[in-house]
């Protein structure tokens, strides 16, 4: 589905990603784990062409989309939920979600509010509230709901558990799995929370200082405890 090959990413003169290769298969669920500041967010933003300067190639179903601007990638069916959520404060929750209609891919109808509430019961009581008036946990739910509202093919989640209470993190596991099952959405997740990553994905990449240090299934990850020690321990 998405094939990232030899991506180098830069912010100004600082070289963040070094020859990163990532493969996300159709309906695959892949986690990228790593410490703070190793380039996880930069990787997702590079895939969306939203921010960093990049070299290398991003392919979508075998076709290169390296030159496409971010909004066109969104319209292909790529939805990124940024780690800072970026809910529009001056719009209501429903309006925030309605915005995703711009990304509606190839005429597939977006989810109705009811359908969305089915996936995220938590957002029902806050639909008419302004984005600036909801809690951090609610913002995260709205950010994910907004991203899936137009049935993207691929969901890119950037540290969705950051700053969330444990109960909400558990809730989010159910939400994310439920959506990916129901909509056959592929998932590329960047996380520091290994527990959450393991619950929601099948394969894992470990990234350290901009380079891929390991890739494999979670069983293979567990078979090499030194990886955790070397690249993830704080």
């Amino acid at each position: 589905m998405i094939e990232v090959s030899g991506i180098n990413a830069f912010y100004g003169t600082s070289h963040i990603l070094h020859d990163v290769d990532i493969h996300l298969p159709d309906e695959g669920r892949v986690a990228v784990v790593g410490r703070n500041g190793v380039g996880k967010s930069t990787l997702l933003k590079s895939i969306m062409n939203a921010g960093p300067k990049t070299q290398g190639e991003v392919r979508w179903n075998g076709e290169s989309i390296t030159r496409l601007p971010a909004y066109k990638r969104a319209r292909l069916g790529l939805q990124l939920v940024p780690e800072d959520r970026r809910i529009y404060q001056h719009l209501t929750v429903l309006e925030n979600i309605r915005m995703s209609e711009f990304a509606s891919a190839s005429g597939k109808p977006c989810m109705t509010a009811d359908e969305l509430v089915g996936h995220f019961p938590m957002i029902e009581p806050i639909l008419t509230r302004l984005g600036g008036q909801i809690s951090g946990g609610q913002q995260q739910m709205v950010a994910v709901a907004r991203a899936i509202a137009c049935r993207p093919r691929v969901l890119l989640l950037d540290e969705p558990t950051e700053g969330l209470a444990p109960a909400i993190v558990e809730q989010l596991v159910e939400n994310v799995r439920g959506i990916c099952d129901a909509e056959k959405t592929s998932l590329l997740l960047c996380e520091q929370n290994i527990w959450f990553a393991r619950k929601t994905t099948d394969r894992v990449y470990v990234i350290d200082t901009g380079r891929i240090a390991f890739s494999g299934t979670w069983d293979e990850f567990d078979a090499h405890p030194e990886i955790k020690q070397q690249h993830l321990a704080v």
């Binding site: 969306m48 939203a50 921010g51 601007p69 971010a70 909004y71 969104a74 319209r75 939805q79 990124l80 940024p82 970026r86 529009y88 404060q89 001056h90 719009l91 309006e95 915005m99 995703s100 711009f102 990304a103 509606s104 907004r146 137009c150």
Partner: peptide
């Protein structure tokens, strides 16, 4: 108007949502 305001407040997110920013 709301979309224009949204774009002025956070252009990056507007792009991620699929708005044809140019």
């Amino acid at each position: 108007g709301k979309m224009l305001t949204a774009m002025s407040r956070d252009r990056l997110m507007a792009q991620l949502m699929g708005l044809n920013v140019p």
